[in-house]
Structures are given as structure tokens and as C-alpha cells.
Design a protein around this nucleic acid. Structure first.
Length: 596
DNA sequence: GGCATTGGCGCC
DNA sequence: AAAGGGCGCCAATGCC
């Protein structure tokens, strides 16, 4: 087995063949677990592009024609597919394949020490059929790709990311469970207090408990909200007519409720917030080592996703992130791309419009701050003056920079003025619709290329009727069935996704199998779109941080060749959004310590 | 009781 | 002409 695998890997590295499978990252991680001496060969096979994954290819094809994640099967029915081998066989080949637990799929460990000659016939047949299916699907995918004139150019990058993310998942991330317990108990006492009040106020009733509490801990109060009563209360106390949901019902969003200033409703909002944190996040954190699962092609934009639990949407407040800790003897070193989507937008504008002021500004200064530059325009002062005021912590320029930032985040996606007012509120920026219009006008003057950018997006949609096809100028990644806004967003979001994934793979590769690298021996533990967190031996913080920045920038600039990039490393003893970059007197990266 | 949808909210 | 997008997960609710 070992010899056969070694030859298979070497053959793929030499280009004699490629290795293909359904979710190959799983198989490859198992190979490494079983034969650690093959690890270098596995990484090298990925590096040279010797691996194909039917699941990823299927997603890319579905994205290209705009049906992801609900493909149309061979009978013409729109189905929800999870891109398992059985799903793909059913949807694309029209074959019925059982994937239940009654099959051998998950039972081969029973045969670990059984010689092949003594394997049950069904176990052998299942394995052979599995390989045959992969082969049939590959062929079918090639035919469909040919029909689209689309060779899935990002598939190797996606497959590499899939593997690196799988390795991250296997490694896991550690949790300070004592701290989780404290947070849980605090939350539960508060929830019980509010629950009692809500029941007395008749906006909720007691129900039977649903889930077992974590062992040795207080249970979650078992109540059910009376949404009809709550909507009625909102309608009575909201100043004016309360906003409605698309379904036509009165919105019960926290933002709406806060306008009511009714004590019962305020309790309800607090209950909701505490309950959300406890049930969504804390319940998953009683394990000392968590293996969240990442999906390399989680969305139609080629972004990743994460689940069980989702480490990509951990709350910034409430001390949740702070429960994640490195292995003993290690610290976290994290780095994120500076204004990643502004830079990918600049590259896209250059590619699509031919000219971009945003691009020119980045080309003039790698550390260009697009938010400050636009704030200076809004203030009617020079950028130098604005920078000086900001350094002096001038409140006016800080507020304008915040407004500017919201513009730069919202408007590139095609956001309208009314939505912008609402969106800005979420960023703590209160503005009138008139001011929003003023900002939007000024924003177009700031980045004049955006007129052309939006016209291009609009043309793509109009020519096709209701939906358009986005073909990325840098990657040739194709996404069909797009609305105007999906295209406006898609260009820069997708390019950022490509860049982050490439960086994530290369950083991981060096961590695992590149002894010459300062990253060697460190382990990636979290990936959050534009941010990478590693656990690093405490003595190696500075060198690791430096190389992490270098590799991220180098990989990013492969996707934004006309735009310089920037990434900054920080070191911390636990995951925290509050952490800052700290350097000692010699300019060496050191651990941030909280000073409260 | 199980399943799917809606509304809402956490993050980038 | 005008139009934020991308996720995962939870509670409530509607449907079978």
C-alpha cells in the first residue's frame, strides 16, 4: 500500500498522471496520518497541481452556469445538492447511488487489519464502484466544461485550499473551557432573570427544555416567544409605521425595537442577544479541542465557508473569541490583508475600465489609506492635513473617516442611498438620506472609474435579460446567473477569495514541510477570508510574523499584479479583536498584552 | 414528529 | 433607472 501510494504521488508530481477523487483532501489527510513519511510528497503533489476533486469541479461548473447550490438534475428538477459523490452521480449522471450508513463507505476501519483476500465481496465492490464513479463523473464534467468553453482555471487553487483547510481542521483549535464555563454561567443567570420577566409580561411562555445543558452547568431557560404579541406591541409603541419584512409582516429586528423604547421590548432584545451568543457559540465550545470544518468552495463567489462551529463569524464582543487559545508553549500570530477588497477592486477597475484612480493611488503608495483620502475630500482639506489631524486624534476627521469607510465598503457593491442609511447605522454612523446622497455623489467624484465599472456590470446583465455571466479578468473564473449587484460585488470579492486561498495554501505548506522556512513548525488554526491565524512557538514570533506577511503579500500580488499589497502581523496569547501590533525597541514583533 | 422556509443576526 | 454581496446557525412557524 505504502509503495503503491508513493508511486502514485511521484507519478502525479512528474506529470505522468493526476490523482482524482471525491473530496480528495480527506483521502490525502488520511494518507498522511497513516504514512507520515509521505507528507512531503502529498504537499508537493498539490503544489504542482497533480490533484483533481470531483466535488470542487462540480461546484465550479454549477457556479459557471448559475445554479449553485441548487443544480438541475437530469430530469430537469431543481434539487438541493450537497455535492457528495452520490449527489453528483444522481444529479449529473442520473444514477441512483445509496450513501446511507448501511454501505461500506464509513466502515473500512473494520478491515484495517484484514488481508485483502479476506475482505467481504461487498466491501471490495463498493471501493471499486467508488473509483469507477469518480472516473465517470470526471468524464462527464469534462464534457460539460467543453460545452461551456470553460476549463475551470481556478480548480487547482481551490483543490489546494481544500487540502490546506482540511489539514487546519484536523489540527484543530484549542479552547479555554474554564473561561467558557464562566461565560455560560453568567449568561444563564441573566437569561433566567429576563425570561421570568418576559413570561410575566406575556410575550413569552414556558416550554419544555429542548437540549441538555452542558454537564454540570445551568440549563438554558426554556421559553418560547409569542411573536404575534411582540409584533402587536411594536405596532403600538413604534413612532410612526414600523418597517415590514419582505413577507409583509412587522419587522421584529433589534434596530426596529430600539426605536420603540418599551421596557418589555428592550428586555426581549437583550434576551435575544445573550441567547444568540450562548446557543450559537458557547454551546460548541465546551470541547478543549475543536475541529471546525471548512469548505474551500463554500459559495458562488469562490469564498470559503466554515461550520460546526463556524469560526468565521465569531462575535467581536462578549469575550467569545478570547476563549480560543494556542497550544502550550505557543502564541497566536495573525495577519490580515490591509483593505484587501479595496485593492482587488482597484485591480478589477484597471482590468475592466482601463484606468483607475484607486489603482494609481495604491501604485503611488503601498500603504495608501483610501478612507482617509476620501475623508479629506469630504472635509475639503488636503490629505496631508487630514493625516495630521488624524494623528492628533481630531474627532471631526475621525468621524469623517468613518463615514468614508462606510462609503468605500458599501458603494462598490452598488448600494443605493436608502439602504446606505441603514447600512451606515450598523457601523455607528447616523446620517440622513440627503447626506447619504451627498456622500454617494462625492464618492463617484473620488473614484470616477466607478461609473464605468457599474455600467459594465449593468451591460452584462442587460444583454442577457435578467442575469449575466461574470468572467473574471484575472482568473477567468466564471459565474453565471448573476444580478447587477452580484456582478458589482463579485469581481472584487472573488478576486480577494482567490488571493486569500493561495496565501493560505502556501503559508500552510511552509508550516508543514518547508524546513528552510521561518514558518516551519507553526500551524495554521483559523482562516477568516482575509485573515490567517497561526500558532507559533513563542521563541519564533518575529521571524514567523515577518515571513507570514511576506508570503501573504507575494501570493496576493499574483492576483493583483498591478496593485501593491500589505499585510500586518500581530502576536497574542488568545484570539482577540482588540489585539494590536506590538514591536519592541529593536523593532521585533512581540506579544500584545492586554492593559486594562 | 420531521422538513423547509422565513426572519434575524453573527462575521468578512 | 435602480439595485450590497458572501456565508452558517438559531428560533419560530407553516406544511405534510
Amino acid at each position: 500500500m505504502h509503495r503503491w501510494l508513493e508511486n502514485a504521488l511521484r507519478g502525479a508530481i512528474e506529470g505522468v498522471h493526476v490523482l482524482a477523487g471525491q473530496y480528495v483532501a480527506y483521502d490525502m489527510s488520511c494518507i498522511i496520518a497513516t504514512f507520515p513519511d509521505l507528507e512531503e510528497l502529498v504537499w508537493e503533489t498539490y503544489r504542482v497541481g497533480g490533484v483533481l476533486c470531483t466535488s470542487i469541479r462540480e461546484k465550479l461548473l454549477d457556479i459557471a452556469i448559475g445554479v449553485f447550490p441548487y443544480p438541475i438534475d437530469t430530469t430537469g428538477t431543481k434539487t438541493k445538492s450537497f455535492y457528495s459523490l452520490a449527489d453528483i452521480a444522481r444529479v449529473s449522471l442520473g444514477m441512483t447511488v445509496s450513501k446511507g450508513e448501511d454501505t461500506w463507505r464509513t466502515r473500512y476501519s473494520e478491515l484495517a487489519n484484514v488481508p485483502l483476500g479476506k475482505w467481504p465481496q461487498e466491501a471490495i465492490e463498493y471501493a471499486i464502484r467508488d473509483a469507477e464513479l469518480v472516473s465517470l463523473i470526471l468524464e462527464n464534467q469534462d464534457e460539460r466544461a467543453l460545452g461551456l468553453h470553460y476549463d475551470m482555471p481556478t480548480q487547482f487553487d481551490d483543490v489546494r485550499a481544500d487540502f490546506a483547510l482540511r489539514m487546519m481542521s484536523v489540527w484543530g483549535i484549542r479552547v479555554n473551557t474554564a473561561r467558557v464555563s464562566e461565560l455560560w454561567e453568567d449568561s444563564m443567570s441573566r437569561l433566567h432573570e429576563i425570561a421570568e420577566q418576559l413570561v410575566a409580561d406575556k410575550v413569552a411562555k414556558r416550554t419544555k427544555p429542548k437540549d441538555e445543558p452542558p454537564p454540570g452547568h445551568m440549563p438554558m431557560p426554556a421559553i418560547q416567544r409569542n411573536m404575534a404579541a411582540i409584533r402587536e406591541l411594536i405596532e403600538q409603541t413604534y413612532p410612526g409605521t414600523p418597517p415590514q419584512t419582505p413577507g409583509g409582516k412587522t419587522s421584529t429586528a433589534a434596530e426596529v425595537i430600539e426605536e420603540c423604547s418599551d421596557p418589555v421590548l428592550i428586555d426581549l432584545v437583550e434576551f435575544g442577544k445573550v441567547q444568540k451568543v450562548a446557543s450559537t457559540y458557547l454551546t460548541k465550545m465546551f470541547e478543549p479541542l475543536i475541529h471546525a470544518r471548512f469548505d474551500a468552495v463554500g459559495g458562488a463567489s469562490d469564498r470559503t465557508s466554515c461550520r460546526d462551529p463556524n469560526l468565521q463569524n465569531q462575535p467581536n464582543v462578549a469575550g467569545i473569541r478570547e476563549c480560543f487559545i494556542p497550544s502550550p508553549g505557543h502564541v497566536f500570530v495573525s495577519a490580515d490583508f490591509d483593505s484587501q477588497e479595496m485593492r482587488t477592486l482597484a485591480q478589477c477597475c484597471l482590468d475592466i475600465c482601463g484606468k483607475s484612480r484607486l489603482a494609481e493611488r495604491y501604485q503611488a503608495d503601498r500603504h495608501f489609506d483610501p478612507h482617509l483620502e476620501f475623508a479629506a475630500r469630504l472635509a475639503g482639506i488636503s490629505v496631508e492635513q487630514a493625516a495630521r489631524l488624524l494623528a492628533e486624534k481630531n474627532e471631526d476627521i475621525k468621524a469623517l473617516r468613518q463615514q468614508s469607510k462606510v462609503c468605500n465598503f458599501g458603494f462598490p457593491g452598488g448600494m443605493g442611498v436608502d439602504t446606505f442609511v441603514h447600512y451606515a447605522k450598523g457601523w455607528g454612523v447616523e446620517i440622513t438620506p440627503d447626506r447619504a446622497q451627498e456622500l454617494k455623489n462625492a464618492w463617484f467624484e473620488q473614484w470616477p472609474e466607478m461609473y464605468t465599472y457599474f455600467r459594465h456590470a449593468s451591460n452584462l446583465v442587460d444583454f442577457e435579460g435578467m442575469s449575466g455571466v461574470m468572467i473574471h479578468p484575472q482568473s477567468r473564473f466564471r459565474r453565471g446567473g448573476c444580478t447587477y449587484m452580484e456582478i458589482s460585488n463579485g469581481y472584487f470579492q472573488t478576486l480577494a477569495a482567490h488571493a486569500s486561498k493561495s496565501a493560505q495554501f502556501e503559508v500552510s505548506r511552509r508550516c508543514y514541510v518547508e524546513p528552510e522556512s521561518a514558518l516551519y513548525g507553526s500551524r495554521p488554526v483559523v482562516f477568516v477570508h482575509d485573515e490567517l491565524i497561526l500558532e507559533v512557538p513563542e521563541f519564533a514570533i518575529h521571524e514567523t510574523g515577518q515571513e507570514l506577511e511576506r508570503v501573504m503579500i507575494e501570493k496576493m500580488e499574483k492576483w493583483t499584479p498591478a496593485i501593491p499589497s500589505s499585510a500586518e502581523a500581530k502576536a497574542m496569547r488568545y484570539w482577540s479583536k482588540a489585539a494590536e501590533r506590538v514591536v519592541d525597541a529593536e523593532g521585533r514583533l512581540t506579544v500584545w498584552e492586554e492593559t486594562s
